[in-house]
C-alpha cells in the first residue's frame, strides 16, 4: 500500500474518533455545567475540557474570555482550531477523499454525508438549545462510521490502518480524560456532591457509566473508576482494551508484510503488557497523574513511530 494512502486512512480513523470524543466531552461538560453552574463560578469544568482536548493553548491565543459559549464554539465549530468537531469532520473527509478508492462505499457515504451535513450547521446550531442535538448527531455519525468500516471493509492493510488510527486516538483520549480529573480521583474528599458529579462525568466521557455498574455492582469509587478505565479489558474504551487492539493491529500489518517490525511494535507490546499485568493499587500508589502523564507521552511516541515506519516511509 502507498505510504500516503496508509497515512490518510490512519488520520481518517483518528479524526473521526476525535470528533466523537469531542462530542462526548462537550455533552458531559454541558451536563455538569447545568448541574453545578451555581458552584462552578470559575468555569473550571470548561477549563478542564479545553485541557482534555489539548485546545487550551489555542483557545488562549483567541484572547476570548473563558465562558461556556466561547469554549463550546471553539471546540465544536472553530475553523482555526484543528481539533474542533467541524475541523475534524473536514479533515476526516479530506483524508477520505484523498483515498476514495481504498474505502468502501458505505464508509465513504458515512464520512461524506457527515461532512455535507456539518457544513450546513449555523451559529444557531451551537446555542445551548440546539447543541445537544448536534452532539448526539456527531456521536451517531462516528458510531455509523465505525460500524461501516467494521462491517464492510476487507480485513486487509487498509482496514488495519483505519483501526490503528481509531485506537491510538481512543487510548489517548481515555488517558487525557482521566488525567484532567486525577484530582477528583486522588483527592481526600470522600464523596461530596461535586466530586460525585465529576466521577460521573469521567465515566460518561467514555460512555462507561452503565458499564461501571455492570462490572462492579457498587457505588462510584475513584479507585474502581481508574481501574475500569485503565485496566479492565472488557471496557472497549479502557486503555488496556485500546492497547490490545493496537498491538494486535500492528502485528497483523507486520504479518502481511512478512514479519517486518520496528520500534512501534515493541513499544505497543510493552505498553500492552504493562496495562495487562498492572495493578490499580500500584498505579495509585506511584501517583495516578505521573502514570497518566507517562502514558500520554508514550502514546505520542508511538504515534511518531507509526508515522516514521509506515506513513512517511
Amino acid at each position: 500500500m502507498l505510504s500516503r494512502t496508509a497515512d490518510s486512512l490512519y488520520w481518517l480513523g483518528r479524526y473521526m474518533e476525535r470528533a466523537g470524543n469531542n462530542a462526548r466531552g462537550l455533552q458531559v461538560t454541558l451536563r455538569m455545567a447545568s448541574l453545578t453552574g451555581a458552584v462552578d463560578r470559575r468555569n473550571n469544568a470548561w477549563r478542564a475540557l479545553l485541557t482534555v482536548s489539548g485546545a487550551a493553548p489555542g483557545f488562549a491565543t483567541t484572547g476570548q474570555e473563558l465562558t461556556q459559549d466561547a469554549v463550546v464554539r471553539y471546540l465544536a465549530a472553530e475553523a482555526k482550531n484543528p481539533s474542533s468537531i467541524r475541523s475534524c469532520i473536514e479533515a476526516a473527509r479530506s483524508n477520505a477523499r484523498a483515498v476514495r478508492t481504498a474505502l468502501t462505499v458505505d464508509m465513504w457515504e458515512a464520512v461524506n454525508e457527515t461532512w455535507s451535513e456539518s457544513r450546513r450547521s449555523t451559529d444557531d446550531t451551537f446555542t445551548p438549545d440546539h447543541l445537544p442535538a448536534f452532539l448526539d448527531w456527531v456521536k451517531s455519525r462516528t458510531v455509523l462510521f465505525n460500524g461501516a468500516y467494521a462491517d464492510t471493509m476487507l480485513r486487509d492493510e487498509a482496514w488495519s490502518f483505519v483501526r490503528l488510527g481509531t485506537m491510538v486516538e481512543r487510548a489517548d483520549n481515555t488517558a487525557r480524560v482521566l488525567d484532567v480529573h486525577h484530582h477528583a480521583l486522588m483527592g481526600a474528599e470522600e464523596g461530596g456532591t461535586l466530586a460525585h458529579f465529576q466521577w460521573q462525568a469521567i465515566l460518561r466521557s467514555v460512555s462507561a457509566l452503565r458499564a461501571y455498574h455492570w462490572v462492579y455492582h457498587a457505588r462510584l469509587d475513584p479507585q474502581r473508576i481508574a481501574e475500569l478505565l485503565i485496566l479492565r479489558p472488557e471496557l472497549p474504551r479502557s486503555m488496556v482494551a485500546c492497547y490490545a487492539r493496537i498491538e494486535e493491529t500492528l502485528d497483523g500489518i507486520a504479518t502481511l508484510h512478512g514479519g517486518r517490525r520496528g520500534e512501534a511494535h515493541r513499544l505497543a507490546g510493552e505498553m500492552h503488557a504493562r496495562l495487562r499485568f498492572g495493578r490499580i493499587g500500584d498505579i495509585m500508589e506511584g501517583g495516578l497523574h505521573e502514570f497518566l502523564t507517562a502514558t500520554v507521552n508514550r502514546n505520542l511516541e508511538l504515534g511518531r513511530q507509526i508515522q516514521g515506519f509506515y506513513l512517511q516511509a
Binding site: M1, L2, S3, R4, A313
Partner: peptide, 23 residues
Amino acid sequence: VEVLEGPDLVVENDVVYMRTTTG
C-alpha cells in the same frame, strides 16, 4: 491500480518507484 501523486514517486538510477508501506 494505484492513484499516485508526485510525492508518492521517487526515481533512483532512472527507475521509477512508488513509496509503499513495505518499501
